[in-house]
Simulated scan of single mutants.
Amino acid sequence: MKQIEIGTSGVHTGEIALGCMRMNQLNAAEAEKVIRTSMEAGITLFDHADIYGKGESEEIFGKAVDLNGPDRQHMIIQSKCGIRGGFFDFSKEHIVRSVEESLKRLGTDYMDILLLHRPDALMEPEETAEAFHQLRREGKVTHFGVSNQHPGQVELLEDAFDEKLHVNQLQLSLMHTPMIDAGFNVNMRNDAAVNRDGGLLEYTRKRGMTLQAWSPLQHGMIEGPFLNNDQFPEVNKALDSFAEKKGVTNTAAALAWILRLPLSVQPVIGSMNTERIAGAAEASNVKMTREEWYELYRAAGNDLP
C-alpha cells in the first residue's frame, strides 16, 4: 500500500485507515484477525474514539493486540474525544481525563494522534491548548488534529496552540460531496453553489493537513452503504464497470475515487469483515484517469455547470 505523511507530522502510514467504531461487536480473537488482516494489507492507522461502543471498542482492541509489544512500532493509534451525552466538551479537564481513560482501555502509555470530535461552541482555545501541551509534556499524545471543523475553527485553536494541527476528519464519499460541489458551482444560483464549510477542500490542501474521509462508503448521515444498494443504480453500474476493468472490488473503486483527489487524503473504512478490508486495500494501487473520476462523479447524480 502507498504511504502518506499525516499532515506535516513526520508520521507515515498507509493511505487507508481502519475505523474501529464497530469493534465492540467482536470478541478479542475476531478483533485480532481484523487487525492482522489490516496490517498485512498495509493498513497501519487505527482510528478510535472514546464514545465508540461507550469505550468497549477501545477495550476490545487493547485485548486483541499487545500495544506494549513489537507490533506497536508498526501501528499508528489515533483516538478522539469531546462528544458527551447531549453536548460537546473541549475543556482541559475533560480532554485530559478522556485521553487517560482511552489509554487505559487500549493498554498503552501513549497515542500517536488525538483528534477533537465535533466543534465545541464554548471552547476556550487557550484552555484546550493547555490540555494539548500537558498531554504532550507527559508523553501521552504525540500529535493533534480535529474532526468536522471549518477553517475558522481550526485557526482559532491553532493560534492558541501555536503549533499545526495535522488532521481534519470530515465526511466525504462519492455520495457525499458538498465540499467538492461548491467548487464547481461558484457564483451560481443553485443548491450546489452553497459553500457550507468555508472552502475546506482548498484550505486543507493549502495548509498541508490530511483530510481523513469518514463514512467513505456511506450515503446520507450514516444511513447505510451505497454500494450494491438498489436506491443508487447509476452509480453502482458505473462503479461495477470501473471495478471490472481494473480487476478490483467495487469497494476499492469507490475508495480510489477519493484517493484520486490531489491532496493528502486518507479514507477511514469501518468494516470489520476481513475479506472486505483486504478488498478495500486494493484501492491504493488503482490508477484513475480524470475522465473516469468525472464519470463516477456524474453517475452519483451530480451535474456539472
Results as ranks from 00 to 15, higher is better:
276 R>P: 01
74 H>W: 07
255 L>G: 04
137 R>E: 15
233 P>G: 10
30 E>I: 04
69 G>M: 09
245 K>H: 10
18 L>A: 04
40 E>I: 00
200 L>V: 13
66 D>C: 14
40 E>V: 04
130 E>F: 00
141 V>T: 13
64 A>I: 01
158 E>P: 01
153 Q>D: 12
101 E>K: 07
94 H>Q: 12
300 A>M: 06
155 E>G: 04
178 P>F: 14
74 H>E: 11
43 I>M: 05
197 D>K: 10
255 L>S: 05
10 G>P: 14
255 L>D: 02
29 A>C: 06
297 Y>K: 03
94 H>Y: 14
64 A>Y: 01
58 E>Y: 05
67 L>T: 07
148 N>F: 07
27 N>Q: 11
266 Q>H: 10
17 A>L: 04
207 R>V: 04
158 E>A: 09
64 A>N: 00
260 R>H: 09
156 L>R: 02
46 F>H: 09
260 R>W: 05
77 I>R: 03
296 L>F: 08
275 E>D: 13
120 D>L: 02
280 A>H: 00
18 L>S: 03
98 S>G: 08
211 L>Y: 08
221 M>R: 13
264 S>C: 10
216 P>S: 11
298 R>V: 13
69 G>Q: 12
70 P>K: 06
14 G>F: 00
143 H>E: 15
7 G>C: 14
230 D>R: 13
185 N>K: 08
254 A>G: 08
98 S>H: 08
227 L>C: 03
286 V>C: 05
270 G>D: 05
140 K>V: 14
52 Y>W: 07
215 S>K: 09
289 T>R: 09
243 A>P: 00
231 Q>P: 08
105 R>K: 12
149 Q>D: 06
221 M>Y: 13
254 A>H: 02
91 S>D: 02
20 C>Q: 08
107 G>C: 11
304 L>D: 07
111 M>I: 15
274 T>Q: 10
51 I>A: 07
113 I>F: 14
107 G>A: 11
12 H>Q: 04
12 H>R: 10
277 I>W: 02
119 P>R: 03
130 E>L: 00
287 K>Y: 09
120 D>Q: 03
145 G>C: 10
131 A>T: 05
69 G>I: 07
109 D>L: 07
117 H>M: 13
35 I>G: 03
270 G>T: 04
60 I>G: 02
175 M>V: 13
263 L>R: 03
63 K>P: 09
6 I>F: 11
209 M>I: 10
60 I>P: 03
12 H>Y: 11
120 D>F: 02
285 N>I: 01
275 E>G: 15
291 E>L: 12
200 L>Q: 09
60 I>F: 07
266 Q>T: 11
35 I>P: 00
196 R>C: 15
68 N>D: 15
41 A>E: 09
286 V>H: 02
50 D>E: 15
19 G>E: 01
188 M>D: 11
31 A>V: 00
100 E>T: 05
94 H>I: 06
95 I>R: 06
145 G>S: 07
259 L>M: 05
92 K>G: 00
54 K>M: 10
193 A>G: 15
294 Y>T: 09
144 F>G: 14
108 T>C: 15
268 V>K: 06
16 I>S: 00
192 A>K: 11
304 L>R: 11
148 N>C: 13
4 I>Q: 01
178 P>V: 09
85 G>L: 10
294 Y>N: 10
158 E>S: 09
305 P>T: 05
